[in-house]
Write a protein that binds this DNA or RNA. Structure first.
Length: 847
DNA sequence: AGCACGCCGACT
DNA sequence: GTCGGCGTGCTC
């Protein structure tokens, strides 16, 4: 039910001997502290910690917020306002959540309001909107003021329909078809024709299905016979009626009529006339009624508890994990791609459920596919909730409420599912734990879901299994220190051997002029061979668009984004130049705006160009591209995957999206088109990321017994990292990388906090950053602070950037004290009169 | 985050 | 002379 309500008036002053309660509320705003409101005495028993209340904040705003605490201490320096309304009689945010959210705000240097804002599905955040209603005293006949045509329209709309009808501003805008209608409302208010009031509404609306059933008086057999006689000659209506009786056995069981059937099953049936259905309803033969249904329809647990057997290696790993859980809260399952980690997870989840606890299974967004959901559904049936970013708000609220009510005991979800109201978590699984997409980069809270989930597991006493074929250096280090357990699964499931990896030197090919567009002859030949054998190919290129920039060959002109310090990428399909940082786009010029030349060339290449080239070079093959641009729509991602699965497409070209979790049995070749751009990235994690990407994408080659092949194109095959990729030697990579980290003082040995100063004015950005650095150095010491420095892309969305990196020892007390110092320094700069417009963001553990 | 209060340019 | 720009401060 969509609950709507208007505000109650503030309560009168309570008598002195009565208990006066105050509630500290979390406003969904980036404010550093909680605000204290007074509970109207009559409603004392309605305050619920974790429940939503409505308050007036400032002169105009009415907001819904969460009660964080209730107490009897009146604020010393100000008069608390009254809470206007209580929405929930049970917590929407539970105590364990509040504890976790506080930890998040603290750890990630943001406000509780920001955490709440990210946590609550938008549909749980009430919005206030102004509504317009006809003044009760208004009558058209007695109205002394003349009304304009537009005003007349508004009055008409408000007086049609039931008494006291109201409209929102948006509705009025739609009615008049113009944006600037406020003047008419203002004028109508002055003439006492309408008045305004504030109205809050829950945005969640349950899903309703229209059903039909036979009107009661026809249910008896005799009455039915009579009805048939009555409808004789009305063939279409009789058809509908027959179909209804076929589906609902009214003859055999009169009670079955009560539930009826879905109206859509009649109106959209191929041989039935929708208008005949409506005629039957109009004539009172069928009656229509609404039923509230779940957005996650689940027949029953028939499908559930499907069993499968683990392989011997999986069994062993499973036993080992359970054994380690006896002494260890966190275990890393290091299993090569295709080793069958998912079956182990499923078995552990089943076990956890049997003991009565909740389970959270975290996956990166691109790995949470229909494949995995279907698989889990078959085992866990209606106990499984799915939390995905492409879900609508209403769907998210249903998952949220389902966890609260206990309907969903297992949730498989993406990053944001760490916000769900678990209170009895017994198992946490973080698959692909090394994934950087677990980290939210912008806006605040800049949290890492893996770390938040680990903290939640810690608070609730749950065991955690981290899974990866290429664990993050930080996580693997913890297994070395003994803080995490370790289980390794090194054999691929079902006899599939590891792919053969070949390095191909693009520099040599270029010198010999044997390159075919961006393909070496080796890769080209291999592709042709595989396609001839009716096998599939995946090509990985970590850059979308057609070309990263275009260039006038006569005057050297390169189009740049007007908001950011980057060149514009050329997107051929849209025939546009686009900025990948702010979304700015412009038509592709026919001639150079600087010199008028038509001699404009594209430079470099992205997925779109590869796709284009391949369509010409391999005319027989069907080529599909998978990147941010081709997967924006809700189902396009799934469509691309299923086309590839069905082998409608032979070659899949894509960005990082193709590296994750896709299991295609027929892929025998993976090509990495430009390995160098991934390795040479100005960041301490560049090698780790490169290693992970290469190994993950290689894992796409060869499954179900077929040995796959991987071709890596590089200008420098001698780089150390390749050697480890080729031998798929994670350990060796780790040993090499951990030395670098120790030597240069990076995680896991040191903790990094990145501060970014943004300002529209480049000079002020730099000055603010220098001041911030000075403050930090004063508090933390010179050696802890690096920068300030303008990043490689020094301007984004018209803001000039400056970065400061703080490195801290990992000791808890040090970090805690340092964070207080950092906050103090930031506030100092913020309060400085010259830097009022500077924006400062802190990113704890950046990735 | 909004929104109000407060000081400097282009208009009736 | 005013209307309105957005810069700064506050919201229990």
């Amino acid at each position: 039910m969509s609950l709507t309500f208007d505000f109650v008036q503030p309560q009168p002053e309570p008598a002195a001997d009565r208990v006066t309660l105050f509630a500290d509320v979390i406003l969904p705003l980036p404010l550093p502290k909680l605000y204290t409101y007074r509970v109207p005495f009559e409603l004392n028993d309605q305050v619920v910690i974790g429940g939503r209340v409505i308050v007036q904040f400032g002169a105009k705003k009415t907001l819904s917020c969460i009660v964080a605490a209730v107490h009897e201490t009146p604020p010393a320096n100000y008069q608390a306002k009254y809470i206007l309304e209580f929405i929930d009689d049970a917590p929407v945010v539970t105590q364990p959540q509040l504890k976790l959210f506080r930890w998040m705000a603290d750890y990630y240097l943001c406000t509780l309001g920001e955490v709440i804002n990210a946590a609550l599905p938008a549909a749980l955040k009430l919005s206030s909107e102004s509504r317009v209603q006809l003044h009760p005293a208004f009558e058209t006949e007695t109205n002394p003021y003349p009304l304009s045509e537009q005003e007349q329209k508004i009055v008409e709309a408000l007086s049609t329909g039931e008494e006291g009808k109201s409209m929102t501003f948006t509705e009025i805008g739609e009615l008049l078809g113009i944006a600037s209608f406020h003047k008419y409302i203002k004028s109508l208010m002055q003439k006492d024709v309408v008045f305004l009031f504030e109205h809050m509404s829950d945005k969640y609306s349950p899903k309703v299905v229209k059903k039909v059933r036979l009107a009661h008086r026809y249910v008896a057999e005799a009455a039915l016979e009579q009805l048939f006689a009555q409808l004789a000659g009305k063939a279409k209506q009789l058809d509908v009626l027959m179909r209804y009786l076929q589906r609902v056995p009214v003859y055999q069981n009169e009670h079955s009529n009560h539930k009826g059937m879905e109206k859509a099953a009649l109106t959209s049936a191929p041989h039935l006339s929708p208008s005949a259905v409506n005629t039957l309803i109009k004539n009172g033969i069928l009656e229509q009624f609404d039923v509230i249904v779940s957005r996650f329809p689940m027949e029953d647990d028939e499908v559930a508890n499907m069993h499968f057997t683990l392989s011997e290696a999986q069994m062993e790993a499973h036993t080992d994990i359970m054994r380690q859980f006896q002494t260890q809260d966190i275990v890393l399952l290091h299993g090569v791609t295709g080793a069958g980690k998912t079956e182990i997870y499923i078995d552990l989840i089943r076990q956890a459920l049997e003991s009565g606890g909740q389970v959270l299974y975290l996956l990166p967004e691109i790995a949470l596919t229909a494949q995995i959901v279907t698989r889990l559904m078959r085992v866990f049936g209606s106990r499984l909730g799915v939390y995905h970013s492409k879900f609508s708000d209403n769907e998210r609220v249903e998952v949220w409420n389902g966890v609260l009510s206990g309907r969903f005991q297992v949730v498989v979800g993406v990053r944001s599912s760490v916000f769900l109201p678990f209170d009895n978590l017994s198992l946490l699984i973080v698959d692909e734990e090394h994934e950087s997409s677990y980290k939210q980069y912008d806006p605040a809270p800049r949290y890492n879901a893996r770390e938040v989930a680990l903290m939640m597991a810690n608070f609730q006493g749950a065991k955690t299994l981290l899974g990866s074929a290429t664990p993050s250096v930080e996580t693997y280090y913890q297994t070395r220190t003994g803080r995490y357990g370790l289980v390794s699964l090194t054999k691929r499931f079902g006899e599939a051997g590891l792919p053969e990896i070949e390095l191909v030197d693009t520099r040599k090919s270029r010198e010999q002029k044997t390159m075919l567009n961006h393909f070496t002859p080796e890769l080209m030949q291999e592709m042709e061979r595989k396609l001839a054998a009716k096998e599939q190919v995946i090509l990985f290129q970590n850059r979308r668009g057609y070309a990263p920039f275009i260039n006038c060959l006569d005057c050297g002109w390169i189009p740049k984004c007007k908001n950011c310090a980057v060149s514009l990428s050329y997107h051929k399909h849209a025939h546009e130049l686009r900025c990948h940082y702010c979304g700015y786009h412009d038509r592709m010029p026919v001639e150079c705006p600087a010199c008028g030349s038509r001699n404009i060339k594209t430079v470099g290449f992205g997925t779109e160009k590869l796709e284009d080239d391949l369509k010409i070079m391999l005319p027989e093959a069907s080529v599909q591209r998978m990147d941010l641009d081709t997967t924006r729509a809700k189902n396009s991602y799934q469509q691309i995957i299923s086309d590839f699965e069905k082998q409608t497409t032979n070659v899949l070209v894509g960005t990082q999206m193709v590296t994750k979790g896709l299991d295609f049995a027929n892929v025998s070749l993976v090509g990495i088109i430009n390995a160098d751009s991934i390795i040479h990235y100005p960041d301490f994690r560049a090698h780790e990321r490169a290693f992970q990407m290469f190994v993950q994408v290689s894992g796409r080659a060869g499954r179900k017994g077929k040995k796959g092949k991987v071709i890596i194109q590089t200008g420098d095959p001698q780089q150390v990292i390749f050697d480890k990729v080729i031998r798929n030697d994670y350990l060796e990579f780790y040993e090499y990388e951990i030395l670098q980290r120790r030597e240069h003082g990076y995680p896991p040995f040191m903790r990094v906090i990145r501060l970014t100063v943004k300002h529209m004015d480049p000079v002020l950005a730099e000055k603010a950053a220098i001041l911030l650095t000075q403050e930090l150095v004063d508090r933390l010491g010179r050696e802890a602070v690096l920068g300030p420095e303008a990043p490689y892309i020094f301007r984004i969305r018209n803001f000039y950037l400056q970065e400061i990196t703080v490195k801290l020892s990992r000791e808890h007390t040090v970090v805690r004290a340092a964070k207080a110092d950092i906050l103090e320094s930031i506030n100092l700069v913020r309060d400085h009169k010259d830097f009022k417009q500077a924006r400062i963001a802190a990113d704890v553990d950046p990735m």
